[in-house]
């Protein structure tokens, strides 16, 4: 009673419709596969030559920044311009959706009236909430402490943007072309300050730090927080510095002085 009657009750033996169908499918498959098979057929593999490349980064270093807010001038945005130039973050005239990797934040204390301005970017936390919530593991922390987005894996879910307490990440909302080769970025993925990882790996400083030193107030210092001899380590050991929202327990790698 619940079985279906077989409407396509074909007679046993020769079925011309089925034979034609199978032949057509086989032919179509053959034609579709032919170019790829031909390409495969005209190549012949041979062993690759040895890979001569850098070593992988280890956790021997932890990169961090120290920003002296006392030296950060109110109208100066050398760091922001340098970051835009370095990473190709040209705007599209849509401030709500344009990417910002670093921005100047103006603070005013409502009880005292004191004003300050400081740059805020991805804080490269030691316990990054963005890494915890990323479903594919695209948001990750490198061994040397730099928090990055692996755009090969990013599916654009924006959960990391929800999770970041510092609003460090941006979502790329339009087609891009002529990206900077050292800073690939594409539509539909999430991005943020990379601490200029391409420069750091080449032994240089992030663009914002360099620009601040060149044309800004010299407020930004970059270095290895794990090397006790580095200037940044000596400074944080001897001066009072703090992290933004230290109460969240994320241990950011960016510290602020005179804030």
């Amino acid at each position: 009673m619940s079985g279906n009657t077989n409407k396509l009750d074909a007679p046993t033996g020769f079925d011309p419709v089925r034979r034609k169908f199978l032949s057509a499918v086989t032919a179509a498959t053959g034609v579709a596969l032919a170019p790829g098979v031909m390409l495969y057929g005209i190549t012949r593999p041979s062993p690759a030559t040895a890979n001569v490349a850098n070593e992988a980064v280890a956790n021997a270093a932890r990169w961090g920044m120290l920003i002296d807010v006392g030296r950060c001038a109110d109208g100066c945005d050398a760091c922001v311009s340098a970051c835009v130039e370095e990473n190709g973050l040209e705007g599209h005239g849509r401030p709500a959706t344009d990417a910002q990797w670093i921005r100047k934040v103006e603070i005013r204390n409502p009880s005292t009236g004191r004003r300050q301005s400081l740059p805020v970017m991805c804080q490269h936390c030691a316990e990054p909430p963005c890494v915890d919530v990323c479903p594919t593991g695209a948001s990750f922390k490198r061994a040397d402490g730099i928090v990055l987005v692996d755009k090969h894996r990013c599916i654009g879910c924006r959960y990391c943007m929800m999770a970041c307490p510092y609003k460090a990440r941006s979502f790329i909302a339009e087609d891009l072309e002529d990206q900077k080769p050292h800073a690939p970025r594409g539509k539909g993925t999430v991005e943020g300050c990379t601490l200029c990882v391409h420069r750091v790996d080449a032994g240089r400083q992030p663009a914002c730090v360099e620009a601040c030193g060149d044309s800004g107030g010299g407020a930004m210092l970059f270095g290895d927080l794990q090397d006790p001899q580095s200037e940044i380590s000596r400074r944080v050991a001897s001066h009072a510095t703090r992290q933004i929202r230290a109460d969240l327990g994320l241990d950011p790698g960016v510290r602020y002085q005179n804030l």
């Binding site: 922001v80 401030p95 709500a96 910002q100 921005r103 100047k104 934040v105 103006e106 603070i107 005013r108 204390n109 409502p110 805020v120 609003k167």
Partner: peptide
């Protein structure tokens, strides 16, 4: 604190 920025903080 009261904050403001180009990123709508």
């Amino acid at each position: 604190m009261e904050v403001s920025s180009s990123f709508f903080d």
